[in-house]
Amino acid sequence: MSAVFVAVLVLLGLGLVFGILLGYSSIRFKVEGNPLVDQVDSLLPQTQCGQCGHPGCRPYAEAIVNADEAINKCPPGGQSTVEALADLLDVEALPLDAESEAEPIKKVAYIREDECIGCTKCIQACPVDAILGAAKQMHTVITSECTGCDLCVEPCPVDCIDMLPLETTLNNWQWPAPKPGIELIATDRQPSIALEVKG
């Protein structure tokens, strides 16, 4: 009989100890907010373009974390973002869910200023306030702030906004990746080509 008592007491005691331990750690190590959302958000390109079907990058991050949204819906981020997300969330990296190229070319909006009628529609559409102008005045894009999200193109009533790739200058030129070894098949007989720098 006493053995039963002891067993019950021990179990109760254990339960108490672990309960206190758990309760304490839930207070002591409480995590404010959801750090995973922040981490996912920090991997997204912050173009706020909404191409993922969410009204901005953070909502998409929240959907990924909380609603099991697919991680391959961010065309501006390209395949590298998908891979980074897959890495973070430890899931399979999916191919980008769009017909767009895997590594998108970085673009910024340009307003053909002589065609602008000053309707301010693009200003309202811009998620990062990168368009400058006033009603009936010509608008222009602050290129350094533009995220290339495309959102201003559609609202323009006179189609005067172009998305142009960023120009390469001496200051942002960068070394291309060396050609991978697989090129050897084509150049086996003329080995000299293999290392030439492209461009």
């Binding site: 958000d41 920090s42 997204l44 390109p45 912050q46 173009t47 706020q48 901005g56 990058c57 953070r58 998620p127 990062v128 306030d129 990168a130 702030e145 995220t147």
Partner: peptide, 14 residues
């Protein structure tokens, strides 16, 4: 990354 952070700030400010 810097630019994205900046864009996020601007977006949030907006």
């Amino acid at each position: 990354q810097r630019k994205a952070d900046h864009a996020r700030q601007r977006f949030e400010a907006r």
